[in-house]
Each structure stands twice: as C-alpha cells, then as structure tokens.
Design a protein around this nucleic acid. Structure first.
Lengths: 203, 203
DNA sequence: CTATTCAGCGTACAGGTGTACGCAAAAGTG
DNA sequence: CACTTTTGCGTACACCTGTACGCTGAATAG
C-alpha cells in the first residue's frame, strides 16, 4: 500500500478546498461558483465531490472555518508585535493588512458572504467576525472602559477596518499605504473620543 | 388609442424594475436573480426583456441609480429636520434608518453589490456611496476641519452607518433601536476624537 | 385610407447545472 | 487467501439558463 486511504482522502479534500480558493477573485465569488467548476479545478469528477462534502454549502462552511484560523493568526501576530512596543493601533492595522494581502481570497470570501444569500454561511462569517469583536472588546475593557462602551468601540473599529480591507483588496497596491494610514487616523479619532467622553463621565 | 406607445413602454419598464426589487430578499440577491425570473415576475415573456434592457447588468445599473435617489432623499429629509434643532448625529442616523426600513430591498442591493462580482455594478454603487461621503465631507469641512481630516471622518462615519444598516436589515425589528443607539454613540466617539485631536494640533 | 414601426410572444437551441445510479479498482480486514 | 469498504468515474437525466429568430397586432405617420 503506497498511500493510506485516509491520507489520500485528505489529499483530495485539500485539493477541493485549494481549488475553490484559487478560483475566487474579484470577478468570481464563492456564491457564483458551481460544484462542477470546483470539481474541474480540483481535477476530479463532479460526482466525486460528494465523497467529501454534502453540498456547496458545507464546503463554504469549511472555508469560513479556514478564515477563522487566519483571523486568529492576525491577532497572534499583532500581540507578538505589541511586545516590541510601538503604537497599538498602527501595529494592529498594519498586521491586519499584511495578513489580508497574503490571503486575499480568504478575505474576499469573508467580505462577500457576509452579505450573501446563504443563511448558514452568513451566520458562520458573523460568528468569526464576532469573535474578533469580542477579543477586541476584552482588550478595551481591560484598559478600563465599561462593557457597553467597549463593545461600541470594538464594533466600530472592526467596521472601519473591514470596510477599508475590502476597499484595499479592490484598490491598486500603490494606494494601499494611503488607505492604511487613513484607517489608523480613523481609529485614533474613535479611541480618543471614547477616552474623552469616558473621562467626562467618570471624572 | 387608449394608451400611447411610449406610455405603455414606460409601464412595462417600471414593471420590470418593480418586479426585480420585489424579488430581492435576504435569500435572493440581484446577482442570483435570472433574467427569466425577472421576466416572470414582471409578467412578460423572457425575450420581451430585451425591449427594455440590453442585459441584466443594464437593469442593475438602473436599480443602482434608483438607490442614488433614495440616498439623496435621506440627506434632504435629514437637512429639513436639522432646522428644527436637535442632535445632528442622532437626527442623521434616525433618518437613515427610517428611510432604509421603508426601502429595504434597495439597500439590500446596495450592500450586496458593493462587494459583488460585476465590475460595472460595483463601480456604480461606489459612486453613490462616494457621493454620500463627499456631501458629509463638505459639511465637516464647513465646520472648520481640514480636508484630510474631514474625509477621514466622513468615510469612517459612512462605514459605521452602512455596517450597522446591513446589520439592522438582517436583525429582528425589536433589536433595531439598540443598533441605532449604538451607532449614535460610535459616531459621537468619532466626532469628539476628531475635535480633540484637531484642537490639540491647531491650538 | 395605406404603410411603417415596434412592444411583446412563442418556439427553438445549445450549453450549463445538480445529482442519482452502478461499476471499477484499490485499500483495509480477518 | 477471500471478503468488505470506500474513493473515484462515467453515464444519464431532468431542469434551468440566455438568447436568436420570426411572427402578430396595435399604435403611429403620411
């Protein structure tokens, strides 16, 4: 036996996943991708797809899980960089953009399916983003804000960053630094405003 | 002659547009709508569609134009309300949410096609949102900020509002007031932070 | 009046889709 | 060794898609 069965199965499963991600682009979303297109990309017969996923939705959910890993990677990387000092906001934004640019298709999926038509996918994407928000909320709370304020800040920050992320993915690389800097500025406004309004209430 | 030809043509054109908007929902996006589905909804033969639009993309562009009108309506309404006094931010957010809830499908189209796969549609949606941003930027500049800061503020505000708008459209009506209030809070943070950072730089 | 224009229809076709079904062959099992 | 399991394939089918083409009937023009 050259290759074990489970090993081979995992291999084609990866082929399907990778083929799907590779076929994503500005012009082609996961939603507009057909089972047959995916199978063609993975080099298998259309009906073989079913040996690995019940349908396209299940594949989609798997991909969103992959997104989750990437999002966590952003946070781990950012935290490591904090230890070396520097602006928290700048470091976070920079890290986010960096990871996003190395996995553009994963983020395309995230951005697109967030407002997509498949309930399960939307829910899954939301869960991943929510995780991001909670993480940020905890951090902000730890710095001394009440929960309600922390949630509002975290949510707004994620909205701004994701909005800019989508913009950046569609923009020419030469414009990305500018987008990044504007996001930093926007987050600083937000953080400063929250601080001021917090102090004026709590002495 | 009971009905003039141009009159009748305009009528079916409207029927197509309305049928399209009516078929939009959380589960069905414009992108996932077929020409035949639209024709069925409008009560015409599939091939009759071509008497009014070259293809689905052209229909999509027409719908985005319709969105533009709605966005302008928001601004007109908000401005009228400013005259009666009250918080600018609160009034703006309230007006936005109000108009959005009376034309949910138009905003669904906007939110979805913003990250859609059709270049022309994305561009058109972007143009409408950009118009919104410019309008806001002018207002902020008029209150005394430099252009760069005004743009950053406007863009961030639109990002926050649109993000919450999409969230609100998907949420249960009972949760909408809460979302609305949080947006107000977020915009206040942003405005306050911009003010403070502006003052600390310009004396 | 006759002649022209044109919105709307029905038919027809080529091409794509998801997926049910049964077979082959290789890997795992005892 | 014989037996079972399981991955992958090919065929087949029903269905939906966009759209080319030619006709009809009514509104318009002269």
């Amino acid at each position: 036996m050259a290759i074990s069965r489970t090993e081979q199965k995992e291999k084609t499963r990866r082929a399907i996943i990778d083929a799907t991600l590779n076929q994503l682009s500005v012009e082609k979303s996961f939603a507009s991708l057909s089972l047959r297109e995916v199978a063609r990309g993975a080099g298998i017969a259309p009906t073989s797809f079913y040996r690995h996923f019940k349908d396209m939705e299940e594949l989609g959910l798997t991909l969103v899980d992959e997104c989750g890993l990437t999002l966590r990677q952003i946070m781990r990387k950012a935290r490591k960089r904090f230890e070396k000092g520097g602006s928290v906001i700048q470091t976070s934004v920079y890290t986010f953009m960096e990871v996003m640019e190395t996995h553009p298709n994963i983020f395309r999926l995230l951005f697109h399916e967030r407002s997509g038509t498949t309930h399960a996918l939307r829910k899954a994407v939301d869960r991943e983003i929510q995780f991001f928000i909670v993480e940020l909320t905890d951090y902000i709370q730890a710095v001394g804000y009440e929960k309600e304020s922390a949630v509002a800040q975290a949510e707004a920050m994620v909205a701004i960053v994701f909005n800019a992320g989508a913009e950046s993915l569609a923009a020419k690389p030469s414009q990305r630094k500018q987008i990044e800097q504007r996001v930093v500025q926007q987050l600083r406004y937000l953080a400063m405003g929250a601080k001021v309004l917090h102090l004026s209430r709590n002495g």
